[in-house]
Amino acid sequence: MSVTAAQGFTAAGVVAGLKSTGRRDVALVVNTGRSKAAAAVFTSNRAKAHPVLWSQQVLGDGIAEAVVLNSGGANCFTGPFGFQTTHATAEAVAESLGVSAGDVVVCSTGLIGVGDQVFRDKVLAGAREAAAGLGVDGGADAAEAIMTTDSVPKQAVVAGDGWVVGGMAKGAGMLAPGLATMLVVLTTDADLPADVLDAALRGATRVTFDRLDSDGCMSTNDTVVLLSSAESGVTPAADDFAAAVTELCADLARQLQADAEGASHDIRIEVVGAVDEDDAVEVGRSIARNALFKAAVFGNDPNWGRVLAAIGTTGAAFDPYDVDVSMNGVRVCHAGAPDVPSESVDLTPRAVHVLVDLRAGGAEATILTNDLTHDYVHENSAYSS
Rank of each mutant, 00 (worst) to 15 (best):
A16E: 04
K19A: 01
S20N: 10
A27Y: 08
A39D: 13
A39C: 12
N45C: 13
A47L: 15
P51M: 04
S55H: 03
Q57T: 15
D61T: 07
I63E: 06
V67Q: 00
G73Y: 00
G79K: 02
T86Y: 02
T86G: 01
H87F: 11
V93D: 07
S100V: 02
S100R: 07
G102Y: 00
D103A: 08
I112N: 06
G113Q: 02
G113N: 00
Q117T: 09
V118D: 13
F119Y: 14
F119W: 13
D121T: 11
K122W: 09
V123W: 06
R128C: 11
E129H: 15
A130S: 11
G139H: 04
A140G: 10
T149I: 14
V152D: 11
V157I: 15
A169T: 01
G171L: 05
L179I: 05
L183C: 03
V185D: 02
V185K: 00
T187F: 06
T188C: 01
T188H: 00
P193H: 00
D195W: 05
L201H: 06
G203S: 04
V207I: 14
V207A: 03
R211H: 15
D222F: 03
T223W: 04
G233T: 03
P236E: 08
L248M: 03
D251C: 12
R254W: 15
D259M: 03
S264E: 12
H265K: 09
V271P: 00
G273Q: 04
G273R: 02
E277D: 06
D278I: 05
E282C: 03
N290K: 04
A295M: 11
A296G: 09
A296S: 15
G299I: 08
G305R: 01
L308G: 08
A317F: 05
A317I: 11
P320V: 10
D322Y: 12
D322M: 13
A335T: 14
A337M: 14
P341W: 02
T348S: 15
P349I: 12
H353W: 10
H353T: 12
A363W: 13
N370V: 15
T373M: 14
T373G: 10
A382E: 14
S384K: 08
